[in-house]
Simulated scan of single mutants.
Amino acid sequence: MSWTSPEGKVVVVTGASSGIGEATARRLVRVGATVVAVARRDDRLTALADELSSERGRLVPHAADVTDTAAVDALAARVRDEFGACHALINNAGVGGGAFVGRDDLDDALHTLDVNLLGTVRCLAAFADLLEASAPARVVNVASVAGKLGIGPAGYAASKFGVVGLSEALSLSWASRDITVCQLNPGFIVTEGFPQAHLTSGPMARLVGEPDDVAARIVEVLRTGVPERTVPSWYRSFVALRHLAPPVYRAVASRIDRAGGDRSE
């Protein structure tokens, strides 16, 4: 089965009850995919399935927490037993986290790492064999530009740097299994967990995107199998500046509000 279209494919999307995950599930169902939509909030998933019931594809709700290894294993077992394949895994579940100042912030930082990085690792481990059996298969790990630049809450940046490194390593090591692994790095996107009010209400509003902007790129990545994508693409210029002119980058970055380690709302 080729990857010219998601139509007829079985796709697992985590963090699907809102934001980027929900927008991605909508797009995939509308082009004919069977989407196993995963999140903790089962009521939202059920409502989304009802809403999309007349579309070409199908949305299957599955309540699970990516920090629970047994729950992730049960998810993979259900997909294997019920559908017999997993053609794509979209690891999107994530949290933002707060500033890291000292001991009082340890639990928050560990939770952020557990959801964003280890949740992705759990899903990859649980689905690896089924993805290979369903090859050609796709993995899209939703990381962040913060996983390239390290501006903002330290726990969040660390988690996303981890997702970037994990994705890059697997894009090489899993290629022989006919599984492509993409790191998809969004910039500022307005979601429930990331309202970006400090930007949308000011002159920087043009820097902020919508969940569907990212969802469109995810569907494109599924078709093409590219190993890396930044949304919007012009954010890559900041990444290039970080590597080519570190002093200039640090001078610019230090003037950004989030360089203080907080996540402005």
Results as ranks from 00 to 15, higher is better:
Met1Pro: 06
Glu7Cys: 14
Lys9Gly: 04
Val10Asn: 05
Val11Asn: 05
Val13Ala: 04
Ser18Thr: 15
Arg27His: 13
Val29Met: 07
Gly32Arg: 08
Ala33Arg: 02
Val35Pro: 08
Val35Asn: 10
Val36Pro: 02
Ala39His: 06
Arg40Thr: 08
Arg40Phe: 13
Arg41Ser: 06
Asp42Ser: 11
Asp50Glu: 15
Ser53Gln: 10
Ser53Lys: 15
Ser54Glu: 14
Arg56Cys: 10
Gly57Val: 03
Leu59Lys: 06
Ala64Arg: 02
Asp68Gly: 05
Ala70Glu: 07
Ala71Asn: 04
Asp73Gln: 13
Asp73Ile: 11
Ala77Asn: 10
Arg78Ile: 05
Val79Cys: 03
Val79Phe: 07
Leu89Cys: 07
Ile90Gln: 06
Asn91His: 13
Asn91Phe: 05
Asn92His: 08
Gly96Ile: 09
Ala109Lys: 09
Leu110Gln: 15
Asn116Gly: 04
Leu124Lys: 02
Ala125Gly: 12
Phe127Ile: 02
Leu130Val: 07
Leu131Ser: 00
Glu132Ile: 03
Glu132Cys: 00
Ala133Ile: 05
Ser134Glu: 00
Pro136Glu: 03
Val140His: 03
Asn141Phe: 00
Asn141Ala: 08
Val142Pro: 01
Ala143Pro: 00
Ala146Thr: 05
Gly147Asn: 01
Gly147Cys: 03
Ala158Glu: 02
Gly162His: 05
Gly162Phe: 02
Val163Asn: 04
Val164Trp: 07
Ser167Tyr: 09
Arg177Ala: 15
Arg177Trp: 14
Ile179Gly: 02
Ile179Asp: 06
Gln183Ile: 12
Gly187Trp: 01
Thr191Tyr: 02
Ala197Met: 08
Ala197Thr: 14
Thr200Pro: 11
Leu207Tyr: 09
Gly209His: 07
Pro211Phe: 02
Asp213Ile: 08
Val214Gln: 00
Ala215Ser: 07
Arg217Ser: 10
Glu220Ala: 13
Arg223Trp: 03
Val226Met: 12
Val226Lys: 14
Glu228Asp: 10
Glu228Val: 13
Thr230His: 12
Pro232Phe: 09
Trp234Gly: 12
Arg236Gly: 13
Arg236Leu: 05
Ser237Gln: 14
Ala240Gly: 13
Ala245Ser: 11
Pro246Glu: 02
Arg250Glu: 11
Arg250Ala: 14
Ala251Asp: 08
Arg255Ile: 04
Ala259Arg: 10
Gly260Tyr: 01
Ser264His: 14
